[in-house]
Simulated assay, not measured.
Amino acid sequence: MMDRTTYELIENYMLSWMKDSAHDKDHIYRVLYNALDIASGEEMVDYDVLVCACLLHDIGRQEQFEDPGLCHAEEGAKKAFNFLAANGFSEEFARKVSSCIRAHRYRSDSRPESIEAKILYDADKIDVTGAVGIARTIFYGGQLSEPLYTVSPDGVVSDGSEDKEPSFFQEYKYKLEGLYTKFYTARGTQIASERRDAAVSFYESMLKEVRDSYSTGSRIFKDLIDGQSEGQSNM
Rank of each mutant, 00 (worst) to 15 (best):
G142D: 09
L144F: 13
E146P: 04
P147C: 11
P147D: 06
L148N: 01
L148Y: 02
Y149V: 09
T150N: 07
T150C: 06
V151L: 03
V151M: 12
V151D: 07
V151I: 15
V151E: 07
S152G: 10
S152K: 14
P153M: 08
P153F: 08
P153W: 06
D154Q: 08
G155W: 10
G155V: 06
G155E: 14
V156N: 09
V156G: 04
V156H: 08
V157D: 01
V157M: 05
V157P: 00
V157S: 04
S158C: 11
S158R: 06
S158F: 02
S158T: 15
S158K: 10
S158A: 12
D159N: 10
S161Q: 11
S161D: 07
S161C: 09
E162R: 05
E162G: 11
E162C: 10
E162F: 04
K164P: 02
K164F: 01
K164G: 10
K164I: 11
E165T: 13
E165S: 11
S167D: 02
F168N: 03
F168M: 05
F168K: 00
F168C: 04
Q170F: 08
E171L: 12
E171A: 14
Y172H: 07
K173M: 14
K173R: 14
Y174D: 03
K175Q: 00
K175F: 03
L176C: 05
L176W: 01
E177G: 09
E177H: 12
G178W: 01
L179S: 07
L179A: 12
L179M: 15
L179K: 08
T181D: 15
T181L: 03
K182R: 14
K182A: 15
F183S: 04
F183A: 02
Y184P: 06
Y184D: 01
T185P: 06
T185W: 12
A186Y: 10
R187L: 15
G188Q: 04
G188Y: 00
T189M: 13
T189V: 02
I191L: 14
I191M: 08
I191Y: 01
S193M: 10
S193N: 14
E194W: 01
E194K: 09
R195L: 12
R196I: 02
D197S: 13
A198S: 14
A198E: 03
A199I: 05
A199M: 08
V200E: 03
S201T: 04
S201G: 05
F202M: 11
Y203M: 03
E204K: 15
S205W: 09
S205Y: 08
S205A: 11
M206L: 15
M206T: 00
M206D: 08
M206P: 00
L207M: 11
L207G: 02
